[in-house]
Design a protein around this nucleic acid. Structure first.
Lengths: 204, 204
DNA sequence: TTCCATTTGACACCGGGTGCCATTAATGTC
DNA sequence: GACATTAATGGCACCCGGTGTCAAATGGAA
């Protein structure tokens, strides 16, 4: 039961489980009891490992929810770099963000529960800020490069924040509505963002 | 030493201190030892109260930093309501946000240290999300009313997020630079925001 | 078998936060 | 002055997340 995917012929004892395995166990408990009511001890016990070991797989209980987010960020950075130089900023943004949120068919359910937790559980809302900051940094970096500014400057920062806000609003909409495609929602959301702000400062 | 401003002739024992008093004590310790290294016990001991009592004044250690923020939000809502109906959204926004950040001459130093903590200490960055959410809700509510949308809709949300991002960028700039006036920084920041996005979706 | 690298998990500890409850201090009444 | 009432206090035990330490378990290589 506890034999993990034993990696190649490397010396030393083999891990007794894996991040994904732990994630599955944890999500099952989160579904059943809620995030707050599930203790790390519960997860460890359900996974058949020691509490201490859990913290070797994840830095914190919060981190379980985020899966391989950090790795994905690097991918997002690459996608930005791959966009044609002349493309309007907002359009690149739309393409990359939509692509960033595309998940395998089988994963879409997990993705939904993931977002549900992140957006609804206060402890995770708080924690998510730190992750969002990294996400925004990638966006700001891109926006800065395109507009010839520094990532810390006002415009890139505002763009990054607005992009994040748009994505979050789209997530909310997707979670609220019944089953429409997330990518489609994001796509229209970012299209509206570009149009929206264009009018914004002109009319009432 | 511990006699607080004894309120009127109300029955029952009088509070032995006050939120502001505790805040002062705490900030002194934060300055000296840093936020993380300062325990609640330290604060309680320095204030001459029990640890348990501390948590009757503040819901959490994090909350100490935020002072009367929640009360201020109601004031901000009023200011929005007081803006002339025909004024451009971005302009109302600028006026209100700038006004919201105006503090008494004597308080400006505390305000600075407050922002410094919120923006730099990870634990507080995370916690701040929950406060920002309330702030954004007020902005989104206003933006929605003006544009005839729902606060949860995309445009108000994007505006609120962009406004928050702009404010944060301005704070950062203010903290980094030497002593220029915060309100001035915010003012130009929001002016740029309106101009910036106007060009944004048109050029590269 | 021996050596070495690696993971494991038990244990003790810290710090934030909460429920409980007896105690203390203030008021007003008889 | 004795008494109930009201409110704040603070000690205590407890939960939970997170960390440092260290001996033991595991498996490959010599």
């Amino acid at each position: 039961m506890s034999t993990a995917a034993s990696p190649p012929g490397r010396p030393g004892r083999r891990p007794s489980t894996s991040r994904v395995e732990l994630e599955k166990v944890a999500f099952r408990l989160f579904d059943r009891d809620g995030f707050d009511a599930t203790t790390v001890d519960d997860i460890a016990k359900a996974a058949g490992i020691g509490r201490r070991t859990f913290f070797r797989y994840f830095d914190s209980k919060n981190d379980v929810v985020w899966g391989a987010f950090t790795d994905h960020l690097e991918y997002m950075r690459e996608r930005f770099a791959a966009r044609p130089e002349g493309e309007p900023v907002m359009e690149s943004l739309r393409a990359v963000v939509v692509d960033f949120n595309r998940v395998d068919e089988g994963e879409t359910d997990r993705h939904r529960r993931r977002l549900e937790l992140i957006l609804r559980v206060p402890a995770l809302q708080a924690h998510s800020t730190l992750r969002y900051a990294d996400w925004r940094a990638v966006v700001a970096e891109f926006a800065a490069r395109r507009t010839g500014a520094h990532p810390g400057d006002l415009r890139p920062q505002a763009i990054a924040h607005a992009a994040l806000g748009t994505a979050l609003a789209a997530y909310e909409h997707w979670l609220g509505g019944q089953g429409s495609d997330l990518c489609a929602v994001l796509d229209t959301a970012f299209a509206e963002l570009a149009r929206g702000f264009e009018e914004e400062s002109r009319c009432s």
